[in-house]
């Protein structure tokens, strides 16, 4: 097991190089860059914009070939330096991420809790009560959850549901949970529910499908024949086995949650990585984009590793050599 984990950790290195190289290459292909953003409105001032651009490019090291730029960035990354933001107050990317990661993580964890809390019981009940009214209802709900875009649901809640119920709008300004947990949760709960609902749809459907399959297995029939209580059959025998693919899906959802947080953080002004990604892309703040991509890649890789490890815990038959 240790050997397996060690091997997987080693694999992170080439994976990270591949991911970051790809992202770096894509950012090179984007039309326009940070210098264009800075030079907006220089047009019409009688200036030689090309000359200014050349000066900027030299200062930023962009006059060198892409591979050299990437190599320099990678070398700094190895030293733990993700570079400096090109916009605003020129904060280092490390500093920015230090404050942004916890917000995105909090939103992700809350969404995961909401999603799993909805999906697992509903999926199991749907499977156990197959083809009943409740099954049809929950399956319909899952399809709805799958098909409703998060941003649309957010707008619906903010513009229609909240005013209809006479609820105050969500706080515009972020509160740190260590300073004001209640206010923090007041700001987080709606985006967490929206992201959680989006996650719950597929997880619920997979849970139901897996449960249905497991419930038809011989060992479940044997458990029932032994006279075990139905709850015990479902929870101890069926659910444990049915959850393995569900865990995979939840693990893979880590990246979806980070992606979804881009939209939710923008709508609800949550100062996480997603919101920063949007502003960084808009201004072509490539060091920040690269920094965030590194974090996302690490999250996805680690989440997958943890899921693999969790397999062996959930199903003792699985052993890694």
């Amino acid at each position: 097991m240790r050997q397996y984990i060690f091997r997987r950790i080693l694999l992170i290195i080439p994976t990270m190089i591949g991911v970051t190289m790809l992202v770096s290459l894509i950012t090179q292909l984007l039309p326009g860059d940070f210098i264009d953003v800075m030079l907006a409105d220089h047009v019409g001032q009688g200036e030689d914009v090309e000359e200014i651009r050349a000066k900027w490019e030299e200062e930023l090291g962009w006059d060198k070939p892409w591979i050299v730029q990437y190599g320099n960035w990678l070398w700094r990354l190895v030293q733990g330096d993700l570079g400096t933001s090109l916009i605003g107050a020129f904060q280092t990317v490390n500093e920015e991420l230090k404050t942004r990661i916890p917000v995105t993580l909090e939103l992700g964890v809350l969404s995961l809790i909401v999603g799993v809390a909805i999906a697992l019981p509903v999926g199991i009940i749907s499977a156990v009560r197959q083809d009943s009214a409740i099954d049809y209802l929950t399956r319909g709900g899952a399809i709805l959850a799958l098909s409703i875009p998060g941003f649309w649901l957010a707008v619906l809640i903010i513009r229609v549901i909240f005013p209809q119920l006479g609820l105050p709008s969500l706080p515009l300004l972020y509160s740190d949970p260590t300073e004001n947990l209640a206010e923090n949760l007041r700001q987080m709960y709606i985006p967490a529910i929206i992201l959680g609902i989006g996650l719950a749809g597929p997880v619920m459907r997979l849970t139901r499908g897996e449960m249905l399959e497991v419930l038809r297995q011989d060992y479940v029939r044997t458990a029932r024949a032994k006279g075990l209580q139905e709850n015990s059959v479902i929870v101890r025998h069926a659910m444990r086995n049915a959850l393995i693919p569900v865990l995979t899906l939840i693990g893979l959802s880590a990246s979806i949650l980070v992606g979804g947080s881009v939209i939710m953080e923008s709508i609800f002004t949550l100062p996480g990585m997603g919101l920063r990604m949007i502003t960084a892309l808009k201004d072509r703040d490539i060091p920040v984009v690269m920094g965030i991509m590194v974090v996302i890649a690490i999250v996805v890789i680690v989440a997958n590793l943890l899921i693999d490890i969790a397999y062996s815990l959930v199903d003792p038959r699985i052993r890694y050599n």
Binding site: L30, P31, D36, A40
Partner: peptide
């Protein structure tokens, strides 16, 4: 075009 690309090209003529 996206804003940065627009500024880089069309806006400048």
């Amino acid at each position: 075009k996206e804003y940065a690309a627009y500024i880089a090209s069309i806006f400048r003529g």
